[in-house]
C-alpha cells in the first residue's frame, strides 16, 4: 500500500473513531460550528481535513480548559497585588446543573489528567505536529479538495 493510501485510510478511520466517540451533544455542537463554515456535514470534508477539524474541536472542548484555568490563576496574582486579595481558592461558580464548582479543585483535577501533554503526545506520536500547526494557521473552512 502506498504512503498516500495508508494516510488516506488512517485519516478516514481515525476520524470515524473520534466522531463516534463524541457525545450526541458534542456532535450537535460540531455540526453547528460547521454550519457557520458553510459545511453541512463533517463528511463533506476530505479525510485529512475531517481529521484535523475533529482534533481542533477536541482541543477546544477538552484541552484548552486547562490553559484557561492556569491563566485565571496568573491573572488573579496580578489582581491580588492590587490589594484586592483574591485567589483561585476563593472562586466558585455553579455549573448548568446548579452544582458548585471550585476553580481550585478543577485545576487540581485537570493537573492529574494533564490534557495538554496528552494532546501534544498524540500529535508527536502520529508525527502530525507540523501538519496540525499548518492546518491551524490556514483557513479552516476549505471543503473536500
Amino acid at each position: 500500500m502506498s504512503i498516500e493510501n495508508e494516510n488516506f485510510d488512517f485519516f478516514k478511520e481515525a476520524s470515524s473513531l473520534i466522531y463516534r466517540w463524541l457525545s450526541e451533544e458534542e456532535r450537535n455542537q460540531l455540526l453547528m460550528e460547521l454550519y457557520g463554515e458553510n459545511v453541512r456535514n463533517i463528511a463533506e470534508l476530505s479525510p485529512q481535513l475531517r481529521f484535523f477539524r475533529l482534533l481542533h474541536f477536541i482541543e477546544v472542548r477538552f484541552i484548552r480548559v486547562g490553559k484557561w484555568v492556569s491563566r485565571i490563576a496568573e491573572l488573579l496574582e496580578n489582581i491580588s497585588s492590587e490589594n484586592s486579595d483574591l485567589f483561585i481558592e476563593d472562586l466558585i461558580f455553579k455549573d448548568a446543573n446548579d452544582e458548585d464548582v471550585r476553580l481550585f479543585e478543577l485545576r487540581e483535577e485537570l493537573r492529574e489528567v494533564k490534557p495538554q501533554s496528552a494532546f501534544e503526545d498524540l500529535l508527536r506520536q502520529l508525527e502530525f505536529k507540523e501538519d496540525y500547526e499548518r492546518y491551524m494557521s490556514s483557513s479552516q473552512v476549505r471543503r473536500r479538495e
Binding site: 455549573d95 446543573n97 476553580l103 485537570l110
Partner: peptide, 14 residues
C-alpha cells in the same frame, strides 16, 4: 470535568 457547561463558564471567568 468539562460537563454541564463547565468549560464555557471557565472560559467566561477567564
Amino acid at each position: 470535568l468539562v460537563a454541564s457547561s463547565r468549560d464555557e463558564l471557565v472560559f467566561e471567568f477567564f
